[in-house]
Amino acid sequence: MALLDLLLVVGIIAGVYSLLAIGMNIHWGDTGLLNFAHAAFFAVGAYTSAILTTPVLETGLLAERVVGFDLPVVAGIAAGTVLAAGLGFVIATTSVRLEGDYLAMVTLSSAELVRLVIHNEAWLTTGAQTLKNIPRPLESTVTTLPVSYDLFYFLLVWGLVAVTYLLFERMSSGPFGRVLHAIRENDDVALALGKDVSRFKLKSFAIGAGVAGLAGSLWAHYVYAISPVMFLPSLTFLIWTAVILGGAGSYAGAILGAVVIVVLRQVTRFIPGSVPFADQLPYIRLMFVGVVLVVVLYYRPEGLLGNAQRLQAGTSEGE
């Protein structure tokens, strides 16, 4: 029974990470945009939804939040998705014209700026304190059913992953996706075909950010409480690793990459404390992530499920 619980919780985390990876894949895999602000989109989704669905109830010295609504969870999730997409749009408006690695620096800085604001504007977000008592959707209904809440949420998250996957696969192989791919290969070609390159980049950025926002809302409504430490840049880097591992440009790859990362992290939890270097284990684990990233990029730059052809045009210096 307990093992099933563990599998479900790991599955829920993997589902949330999969959504993040899907969002990243439309940016990098389809459009060739370097987005290093994913943690911020995740955070905006989580905080928007949490603020909209929790009344201001906290009392005491640390209760500085004065903004709060008691809206239904579904409204929170919708708003979280939309607002994250909006933030993606705003960041992209200022910077999509920049070259790839400059865009990376602007998005990384923007994400840190967002986190700084969340951390310090306690009237809105409770600041460094934990925003708690976030409701779980349909909790009272589910408890009357003969299924555990974790199972329900697992199905909900993976249902959304499936829907998102199908939508994005379709979009990627449709006319919109073809323009994105043309932009990825070469801006000028797309431009010559009479496409408004910036507008397509903006759309791609907003859509991917929206999915990350959805992931954030779903996560917030599962874990009861959120705080700024959940949204450090290391999360963005981890999702990058997932996308590259799975194969940039492939949505199935993005999901697989996310699942592999989450499962690997869980498996290392079973390593007994008596092995040599057990105290250094958390760090060795992260060193390993670094090695995986480099090794994959060297030996299998197309990733587990990626398309080698896409790669040739996208990442080698053949301009």
């Binding site: 690695d101 690793t241 760090y283 992260l286 060193m287 670094g290 990233l293 990029l297 990442t315």
Partner: peptide
Amino acid sequence: FRTSSPVTLLIVSIGVAFFIRNLIRA
């Protein structure tokens, strides 16, 4: 990675950064 694009190199350097930083911690 000498012939790779600046973007690939940037991502490779993230991997290197992860490795070095956590090696220091260890």
